[in-house]
């Protein structure tokens, strides 16, 4: 790991100033992803701005939404009474991620900003357009078992690894950011990008912008929610496919629905068409199957991830069944 300059501002403005003026600077909060990548030479910032002294870790309810500070720890959010009461799907997704130790370190802001786990991104001896634009995509014709079936480009087929983000995109969250030009709000679905021709850019954050909080509107998704994560061991592994499912059911009729998938695209993958296919229908396996079919439209697989074309819809059905408590 190269040497870097370390600073620990106590004012948000100082952090943003430092970040804005230095393209080689990075924010560090939990550090669980950045330090990992720095050890492997994948990221080589020359300056780290430690924001842990900024007062950004509150979890509060204001008006009709829950607001979670960017520095709130994943573990703390997952166990927070307010979150458990208002947004249990988020708590489930957080607990499905990483380990108890990592959840005690990783922050909400860092979680959404974590980089892909693609093998080719992680190994500096292999080509990767995300790490080194123009070097090629190693995964395209390589070992692409973990890779995308939606929204990829010929430059990058990586997936976003966050569980939390899958729940947040399903829950219509908004990311609050602060930058040199002031504050702005980014709908969660527009926060992450598809790879296109610039896979090196994971998100739509501008240079110098800092995530300060995430806001989740209240909704009737407190009872029939389920986060299903299918992985290669029972815990502590990234998803092959994950599903965030939230239903509002009245008299066995689906009044409202939220559905998103993880492990299938470069961003957390919201399934709005499938949601529409659920609303107004009876909460039955048949309905869920039809929605899963809608959800899979446009999916395309590579050599080693064709199983996702079946695992994804099956997982949607299973997640919806569990959420609806349909045996």
């Amino acid at each position: 790991m190269n040497q870097f300059q370390y600073m620990r501002p106590t004012k948000q403005k100082a952090a943003i100033d430092a970040l804005a003026k230095d393209p080689n600077a990075k924010i560090i909060a939990g550090g669980t992803n950045l330090i990992d990548l720095m050890k492997r030479g994948v990221m080589t910032p020359l300056k780290l701005i430690d924001i842990n002294k900024l007062p950004l870790n509150k979890i509060e309810h204001e008006g009709n939404s829950t607001r979670i500070g960017a520095l709130a720890l994943n573990g703390a959010v997952a166990e927070d009474k307010l979150v458990l009461e208002k947004q249990p799907l988020l708590a489930q997704a957080l607990n499905a991620g990483a380990s108890a130790q990592l959840r005690n370190m990783a922050t909400v802001g860092g979680n959404m900003l974590q980089r892909t786990r693609c093998h080719y991104f992680y190994d500096t001896a292999l080509p990767c357009n995300k790490r080194e634009p123009g070097s090629g995509c190693g995964a395209l014709e390589g070992y692409n078992r973990m890779h995308a079936i939606f929204g990829f480009s010929d430059k990058c087929i990586a997936v976003h690894p966050s569980d939390m983000s899958v729940a947040l995109v399903a829950l219509d969250a908004t990311v609050l950011v602060s930058g040199p030009k002031g504050d702005r709000r980014i709908p969660f679905a527009e926060f992450h990008r598809l790879p296109g021709d610039t896979p090196q850019q994971d998100t739509n954050l501008a240079q110098g912008e800092l995530v300060t909080a995430v806001e989740i509107p209240d909704a009737a998704f407190t009872k029939h929610v389920h986060y299903l994560k299918v992985r290669e061991r029972a815990s502590y592994a990234f998803a092959l496919v994950s599903v965030a499912a939230a239903l509002s059911i009245d008299n066995n009729t689906i009044k409202d629905a939220r559905l998103a998938m993880g492990g299938v695209a470069h961003k957390p993958w919201r399934l709005t068409e499938a949601e529409k296919a659920l609303i107004g229908k009876p909460a039955t396996e048949e309905t869920f199957r039809q929605a899963a079919e809608v959800a899979m439209r446009g999916a395309k697989a590579f050599k080693y991830n064709a199983y996702k074309l079946k695992l994804a819809p099956n997982s949607i059905v299973q997640a919806l069944k569990t959420a609806a408590a349909v045996a």
């Binding site: 093998h119 080719y120 190994d123 001896a125 190693g138 390589g142 070992y143 592994a237």
Partner: peptide
């Protein structure tokens, strides 16, 4: 990855040793 003759799963996140829950 036989194109490079190089391991692509080479840490404990990519190579899954059983954990407590297994």
């Amino acid at each position: 990855d036989d194109r490079y003759g190089r391991y692509v799963t080479k840490d404990l996140a990519d190579y899954h040793v059983p954990v407590h829950a297994d």
